[in-house]
Amino acid sequence: MSREYDSNQPSLINSVVCFMDILGYKSLGKNALKENNGDTAEDFLRNLHNSLRKAKRSITPDPSLPAKVKVFTDNIVIGWPILEDGETELGTTFVNIANYQLQLALDGFFIRGGISNGKHFMDEETVFGPELFETYTLESEVAVFPRVVLSNKSKELIKRFNTEYYGGVGSPFYEEILEDMDGEWFLNYLIATKDEDRGVFNLRLIEIHKQKVAAALSDYSSNYKLLKKYAWIANYHNFFCDKFLIDAEEYKIDTPIQMSDPRQIST
């Protein structure tokens, strides 16, 4: 069986699949367009375009790899055919998406999405398969907050892989995936602030992330529905500071809504 998407003979291939979009894109765009000053819409367009272009480098695979990425403004679909057990493809997808999320967040754009694994096909013209619909449902109905959540099938894969890492503590997924207060597993994208060569976190990026989230909390202080979503990011940010950083009180965010902390999946 082929392990690449073949446009000449389209077929469904076992793959890691991700669907994402930008939180509040419609609202952000409408607000920019209705400002009296036309420069506001132009500035928004330039900021969005530049941010998406920079972030796309994180998820655009090497041309020699079979992975495919399709981006249409705020909608992103990734398909990566699985060659063996899926650990490499799943892990690489997590790393790439964490970097993508972080890059957009540092520009004030926050992502919601879903990741699954199963049958999928995509090329330049077509994206199709049960996991496309699964990840779309995860994004639109399950994620709720600005987080990229995992399907049950992806959870089961990680549980299986973790048994090979002494209960999970030595697993690469130990830092990459968190379990939220509602039991959903989501991508710990702030882990992308870590300099792997030096083994330390980039505190400048943590500070920028803090500023962007604080600004969103201020902007949506009178809109409880959106305020709660950005408060989720603030709570996640503060958990990350407590769990992964040392003496990081100055980097934490004052949030109007307190939520229960997530936890690492092997504990």
Rank of each mutant, 00 (worst) to 15 (best):
V144W: 04
Y166H: 13
F145C: 02
G168V: 07
E156V: 08
N152Q: 11
I158A: 08
L150P: 01
P172C: 06
R147V: 00
G168K: 09
V149W: 06
P172Q: 05
F173H: 05
Y174I: 05
I158T: 10
G168C: 10
K153H: 15
N162A: 12
G170M: 13
F145K: 00
E176S: 09
S154G: 03
L157I: 04
S154R: 01
F161R: 12
Y166F: 13
E164G: 08
F145M: 09
Y165D: 11
V169C: 10
V149E: 06
R147D: 01
E164C: 09
P146C: 02
Y174L: 03
E156I: 11
Y166E: 15
R147N: 00
E156K: 11
V169T: 10
E175W: 07
N152I: 07
T163A: 12
L150E: 02
L157A: 02
R147E: 06
F145I: 01
N162R: 01
G167A: 00
S154E: 04
A143P: 07
L157V: 03
F145H: 05
T163F: 08
F173C: 03
V144S: 01
F145Y: 10
K155I: 15
S154W: 05
L150V: 01
E164N: 11
K153V: 15
E176F: 06
Y166V: 14
P172I: 04
S151N: 06
Y165R: 04
Y174M: 07
G167K: 02
K153M: 14
L150R: 03
V144F: 01
S171R: 06
E156H: 12
T163L: 14
V149Y: 02
K159M: 10
P172A: 02
F161A: 10
E175G: 11
V144C: 00
S171W: 09
E164Q: 13
G167R: 00
V148M: 03
I158M: 12
F145G: 01
A143D: 04
Y165H: 11
N162D: 15
P172T: 05
P146Y: 00
N162M: 14
K155Y: 13
F173Y: 13
R147I: 03
K153P: 08
K159V: 05
V148K: 04
G168W: 12
R147C: 03
E175F: 09
R147F: 00
F161E: 12
F145P: 00
Y174A: 11
N152A: 14
N162T: 09
L157S: 06
A143E: 05
E175I: 08
L157T: 06
Y174G: 05
R147Y: 00
V149G: 03
E175L: 09
F145S: 01
I158H: 05
I158P: 07
G167T: 06
V149A: 01
N152H: 09
V144I: 12
R160E: 10
K155Q: 15
K159Q: 13
E176M: 10
F145N: 05
T163D: 15
P146E: 03
